[in-house]
Design a protein around this nucleic acid. Sequence first.
DNA 1: ATATAATATCAATAGTCATTGATACTTAAG
DNA 2: CTTAAGTATCAATGACTATTGATATTATAT
Lengths: 100, 100
Amino acid sequence: MKLKYCKNKTNSELEQTTNFLKVISEENRLKILCILQKGEMCVCEIWQNLDLSQNLASHHLKVLKDFGIIKSHKEGTKVIYGLNHKNFNELKNSLLYFIK
Amino acid sequence: MKLKYCKNKTNSELEQTTNFLKVISEENRLKILCILQKGEMCVCEIWQNLDLSQNLASHHLKVLKDFGIIKSHKEGTKVIYGLNHKNFNELKNSLLYFIK
DNA sequence: ATATAATATCAATAGTCATTGATACTTAAG
DNA sequence: CTTAAGTATCAATGACTATTGATATTATAT
């Protein structure tokens, strides 16, 4: 008889959580999440503050946004990024079920 | 003037945390951590319960042990693995500073 | 219309890592 | 001493991904 590795958690929840962990396990992306927890910020502020190249910052922002952790809107030529608090909180809460 | 991405946290703490996240972002390793949270278990129970090959389970256990999240001792021909609660809790607490 | 600032995309490269099959090591039992 | 069970290691492979340089897109201002 097989053990269920974590009660009340489905395989898709496990997969969702490990994907979340993969996304935030990259240093630059975790830094981005840290500074966006303080408030919204445009791309140029992000890459300049974190000493990233512009295209690299754009890439990591896309990864975070595609996963639903952050969201963006345009203001003139600038694109402002901010946390998607609802999704971010759900992902964190789900994670805490696995690592208690 | 550069923003510090996360106050009170050093670069090495960030690196430690992202390394921790990389380690637990693999599905089989997160499963292993889940079942070890219930108690100690020998390798053969782990790979049979999780439907892993023996050598693959051994590999993932090594990754977790090398990082200090789990520990092991021998009982006859068996090797019993269990959580290293102290380290695991420290890593989780450090993580929570970054994702609040 | 043109130029410029801000951002996104694309192609290529290099490095990392999960998985597999085979083999070696360790311990206990006959 | 030999065998078997349990576990670890090794080499090879394939897949994924962070990074870079170049280029494209979008929006504003002159």
